[in-house]
């Protein structure tokens, strides 16, 4: 089996796996969209690899494999940064909720005290 087929099967596998994760509601479309686009792009380049070679040559890479590794490295650095942003957002939301819950719980306790006093 040639590398072309291996790349095609792997890319298609990732594409189908992401769809399956969305179907099982383990992944929302909002977060799956990027993975689907990347998998589709990989499927495209595995079939029409001449485009990949042309882009690599255009960007000045001697070997297309170097271009792929460089592209993947950039993509993962960007993804890592993006995930950190999401993590911070979630952390901030958790903090806000925790403060609100704390205050609401206090007010609930106060209300219960008042009601039991009236009774």
């Amino acid at each position: 089996m040639g590398i072309k087929w291996l790349a095609f099967i792997l890319s298609l596998g990732i594409f189908l796996f992401v769809i399956e994760l969305v179907r099982r509601e383990r992944l929302t479309f909002k977060y799956a969209a990027g993975w689907l686009m990347a998998a589709l792009l990989a499927v495209f380049f595995s079939i029409f690899n001449k485009f990949l070679f042309a882009i690599a040559k255009f960007c000045g890479f001697e070997l297309p494999s170097n271009f792929i590794f460089f592209g993947l490295l950039c993509a993962f650095v960007f993804l890592g940064l993006l995930l950190t942003v999401f993590l911070c957002q979630q952390n901030d939301r958790n903090d806000r909720m925790a403060k609100k819950i704390g205050i609401l719980e206090f007010e609930l306790r106060e209300l219960r005290k008042e009601i039991s006093k009236k009774d």
């Binding site: 903090d95 925790a98 403060k99 819950i101 704390g102 205050i103 719980e105 206090f106 106060e110």
Partner: peptide, 24 residues
Amino acid sequence: HVISLPFNLGIGGAVQTGFQFACQ
């Protein structure tokens, strides 16, 4: 009076809860 936070937020988070309570 005690406000119990559901988990540890750190000193800043705890003090800010106090400010939010004072503001409200």
